[in-house]
Nucleic acid binder design. Structure first.
Lengths: 234, 234
DNA sequence: CGTAGAGGATTGTTCAACGATCCCTCAATA
DNA sequence: TATTGAGGGATCGTTGAACAATCCTCTACG
């Protein structure tokens, strides 16, 4: 038996993607880019017809996305792109504060593996230079996903990936992404620097402030938009 | 328009569930109680026949439980009750330490709402008196779910509910539930007392020790059982 | 003893059908 | 005018069947 360790990673690339997962990928990115805004109903017939997949396959894709909380399923009514309430947004930040701060606090001795964080900061800087505010938002999320990854827990990573995907739903409702995301570029950089210098407590302080400010800023504009927009909460 | 605020809570009750969800409920509790031990193959034919549902519906239920990590799906072989690896158990405890400790640390000023915790302690004591070690294990899990509930976050509750359900899979593999669960009765009580007296830092210390000991005790016997039992890890 | 292959059993996938539910429309009534 | 109720159309939920693909077991053979 020859060397096979390197092959394990390739298995993910191989057949392991079912039709339903590919459909879910398509729908997920459509939702992420705002093509299907929150509140939109996704009809089995029209979507299945457009994508050329059977109803069963499509329903499996719906189920995947429902599990990620991107869609909500109402019996005999179909699936809808989730409309977050303000309480949802607050709960998302409750989870973020709980988990992200715990990750920072639980770090062992420095140095820390901050390569991913540095890459996300660079990604955000590049997006800002290109005036690509949606890209800035994505880089922001990448930064915090990398932060969570420092805990080295697959389950935590998965949970937070889903939480961040949900958060993106709120971002699509607000109309001024620049004001919402740009200020946090510098603060992510600060956070990175604190971690690079091995200062956990300072990093935790920065992170807490970050999350508090981010939540209040988001809730302000979000509540206004939801109220005026009259998104189909039902 | 009359007073309708009280009715909002009742909506959850009349929210009907699909057949697939009800089937998933049944299978979930069967797995939780050990009727289907880890490694068991769940045949579409026999289960569908016994429950009187069609294959399509049953497969939907399987998918729901697969998303919850209680079942694993092997292509062309069917679904099996998940067999946790030691790495899985370790990751579960990584999540528990991260989240449960963060919950305790994030508590505000005392007094805390420890009614649920007290009830779980009482439940455990009663089960121990009745020599019902599986009941002790359940009460243990209830205690920690109540602990997480102190954070007041729906999402955190849901995540941890799923994590605890997964953990139960490991419990079913070990053969001496008494030795595994009984020692923690007293420690839960200690934890409760620390919280009742408003001592967060002491509670966090107790909790950390608890989780460390619980993990090492579980991994010891679990690794042995998995190795000798030769559960169908394939 | 080991291997190749046939056959049976099980799963993967799709489709069509029918009942159930929801939503919308419209008419009747107070 | 506002409310109620019936009807119809659209969509979802579930079933059953059919066929292909795959796996497992057992047998026969070298």
């Amino acid at each position: 038996m020859a060397e096979l360790t390197g092959l394990a990673d390739d298995r993910a690339l191989l057949g392991r993607t079912s039709t339903a997962e590919r459909v879910a990928d398509i729908l997920r990115s459509r939702i992420a880019e705002g093509y299907f805004p929150p509140g939109t109903r996704l009809s089995e017939d029209s979507i299945g017809g457009a994508l050329g997949v059977s109803r069963n396959t499509l329903r499996e894709a719906f189920r995947l996305l429902t599990h990620e909380r991107l869609l909500v399923h109402e019996l005999n009514r179909g699936v809808f792109v989730r409309v977050l309430t303000v309480e949802d947004v607050e709960d998302i930040y409750r989870v973020r504060r709980l988990v992200e701060c715990a990750v920072v606090r639980g770090l062992g001795r420095p140095p820390y593996a901050v390569d991913g964080l540095a890459a996300a900061v660079a990604e955000g800087r590049a997006a800002a230079r290109a005036r690509d505010w949606k890209g800035v938002s994505t880089a922001n999320i990448h930064f915090h996903r990398e932060l969570v990854a420092l805990a080295g827990s697959d389950r935590t990573d998965e949970v937070m990936r889903s939480v961040f995907a949900e958060l993106r739903l709120a971002f699509h409702v607000v109309d001024d992404p620049r004001r919402l995301h740009e200020p946090y570029l510098a603060r992510n950089r600060q956070l990175l620097e604190a971690l690079q210098s091995g200062d956990r407590t300072e990093a935790e302080r920065l992170l807490t402030e970050y999350l508090d400010d981010s939540l209040s800023g988001l809730v302000d504009t979000y509540a206004r938009r939801v109220a005026e927009g009259g998104l189909g909460t039902r």
